[in-house]
Nucleic acid binder design. Structure first.
Length: 515
RNA sequence: GGCGCGUUCGUCUAGUGGCCAAGGACACCGCCCUCUCAAGGCGGAGAUCACGGGUUCGAAUCCCGUACGCGCUACCA
């Protein structure tokens, strides 16, 4: 058997859509797994909907995921050019040929007339479609139309009036339509640009595409394509219509479901490996338990007959989990580098740039296994960098495990307005003792900090949970943070001491304010 | 309205006639670990396999019908 050739044929009419990119991924995986060729072809036949920059963004999303193409608009290839607006003559000729073959005809009907018949059909509740007026024009009529309206003629395909058109879908098996239900669709528009149906077939033939792998929304167009192949006398390629990707309301994923552009996910800090892995699992699976797969494993394991026929909902929750898995697996150095960008951009502007390298490094390493998204890093790491941290003194009790206080904190209540518990004076003494201890710890590393703090717990007759919890809030302002001793080490002795002292003082102030 | 496709835990899925009183993963709940949060370990709850008929010794798996959902129904792709 000859080499398999697949293609991804996006229209530059917007940002790279998750669903489209998933189609690209499957076409690419199929090509790679069969040792075939994967091409990208830009289908810019709709001049009105064209959006500048869209083509580059689509290509970039593929590059980001590591889906590399063998032939395409930027690198060319043996069947170029790979942009439809540069192949216009071919479509015109193809349309002419179909007319000569008596498989197509010129239509002079105006948009107004077309709209009117459609409206009438809808009103009568009958199937919409062109009424074939121009299909049966006499020679004289045609001449007259040509003279009067020749400038805005289109070419329509002469759909057989009876019979059935059947094609075999790799994923769904034989699918067949009654020809009489398919109208005479336009193949060449009045601006001499082809419609998708013509351009797609002409190019797939020209580019020797063996497998058309595309989204399920194309299913209903497939019989038209099959007819065009047949009219030309070409053997059609294999078709594989991929299950749709759905939003949370079970309709086709679109903008109103939130982020739908791959680039948005990239900017949010999803890792390309995670995204690739996740997308591959939308409508395909290797077996009953494998979920995590590298690019190579995907290629090795992919096959079209394991593609599901039913649509799949886009589950962001699962994507985030998978991303977290990939983040945790990153070599620390790589993660530090990746996180650095998000820290630079996302940390409050009052923190001086460039960021302290050592601190950024430590902060990133300490939060690596807590992040699901790179974009969470600034929030996760902020307290490492700020000079002053601010928090309601009552939060200290939440940190010490006080259930009621914790509940209020979690509920987002204003803890500034909550009166301090009776033991505020005791806690203040602990914090003061901790601050004093911190100033004397030598050497300044997490081992000696821990040793000293464990001893302090004994001296104060309290528990680690309470003391460490109180100091955690003092040093970070958070109830959730990396382990205390490494955190203090990273923050540094001076800051740790100052923050702990400030926390103690805040309890005093509040006491005074209350009395 | 017409046509097409689809229908297994909330979600992604495994399952291609007996191994399934349906397995895995996310999410959820609990326990363990533990200075908090994560991570990790262990366990739990969660699907009468859309429904109804067949075929068969035997059906989630094959056939028919029904329902529901989605997609398409442009000189858009």
């Amino acid at each position: 058997m000859s080499v398999t050739r697949t293609r991804y044929a996006p229209s530059p009419t917007g940002d790279p859509h998750v669903g489209n990119v998933r189609s690209a991924l499957f076409a690419w995986l199929f090509a790679r797994s069969t040792g075939g060729v994967f091409a990208v072809r830009i289908e810019d036949t709709d001049q009105e909907r064209r959006i500048p920059g869209s083509e580059e963004r689509i290509l970039n999303s593929l590059r980001w995921l590591g889906i590399e193409w063998d032939e395409g608009p930027d690198i060319g290839g043996p069947y170029g050019p790979y942009v439809q607006s540069q192949r216009l003559e071919g479509y015109g000729e193809a349309a002419e040929r179909l007319v000569e073959l008596d498989a197509a005809y010129y239509c002079y009907c105006t948009t107004e007339r077309l709209d009117a018949i459609r409206a009438a059909q809808q009103k009568r509740n009958v199937p919409t479609g062109y009424d074939r007026r121009c299909r049966n024009l006499s020679a004289e009529e045609r001449e007259q139309e040509e003279a009067e309206n020749g400038s805005h003629r289109v070419v329509r395909f002469k759909t057989p009036l009876s019979g059935r058109t059947t094609f075999n879908d790799v994923i769904r098996g034989d699918v067949s339509w009654e020809n009489r239900l398919i109208d005479d669709f336009v193949i060449l528009k009045s601006d001499r640009f082809p419609t998708y149906h013509l351009a797609n077939v002409v190019d797939d033939v020209a580019m020797a595409i063996t497998h058309v792998i595309r989204g399920d929304e194309w299913m209903s167009s497939a019989p038209r394509h099959a007819m065009i192949y047949e009219a030309f006398g070409y053997t059609p390629p294999a078709f594989a219509h991929l299950p749709l990707i759905l939003g949370s309301d079970r309709t086709k994923l679109s903008k109103r479901h939130g982020s739908v552009s791959l680039l948005d996910y990239r900017d949010e800090g999803f890792l390309p490996e995670a995204m690739l892995n996740f997308l591959a699992l939308l409508g395909w699976s290797l077996d009953d338990k494998t979920t995590q797969m590298t690019r190579e494993e995907l290629i090795a394991g992919f096959s079209l007959d394991r593609v599901s026929a039913s649509p799949a909902m886009f589950d962001r929750e699962k994507l985030e989990w998978l991303n977290g898995v990939y983040i945790r697996e990153m070599p620390p150095e790589a993660f530090v580098e990746a996180a650095r960008l998000y820290l630079d951009n996302g940390l409050p502007p009052e923190i001086p740039r460039p960021l302290d390298d050592g601190l950024a490094r430590q902060a990133a390493m300490l939060t690596q296994d807590r992040a699901r998204l790179l974009s969470e890093m600034p929030e996760l790491c902020e307290f490492f960098f700020t000079d002053e941290i601010s928090f309601p003194p009552a939060l200290i009790w939440a940190g010490m495990g006080d259930k009621a206080m914790k509940r209020m904190a979690d509920a987002g209540d204003d803890l500034w307005r909550v009166p301090l518990p009776e033991d505020a004076e005791v806690v203040r003494a602990w914090l003061t003792a901790a601050a004093n201890a911190i100033e004397k710890i030598e050497p300044w590393n997490h081992e000696s900090i821990e040793t000293r703090f464990r001893a302090l717990v004994e001296e104060l007759g309290t528990s680690g949970r309470k003391l460490f919890g109180a100091v955690r809030i003092a040093a970070t302002g958070r109830t959730a943070a990396p382990p205390l001793f490494v955190t203090l080490e990273a923050i540094g002795r001076d800051r740790s001491a100052a923050r702990t002292r400030a926390a103690a003082a805040s309890l005093l102030d509040t006491e005074l304010a209350r009395s």
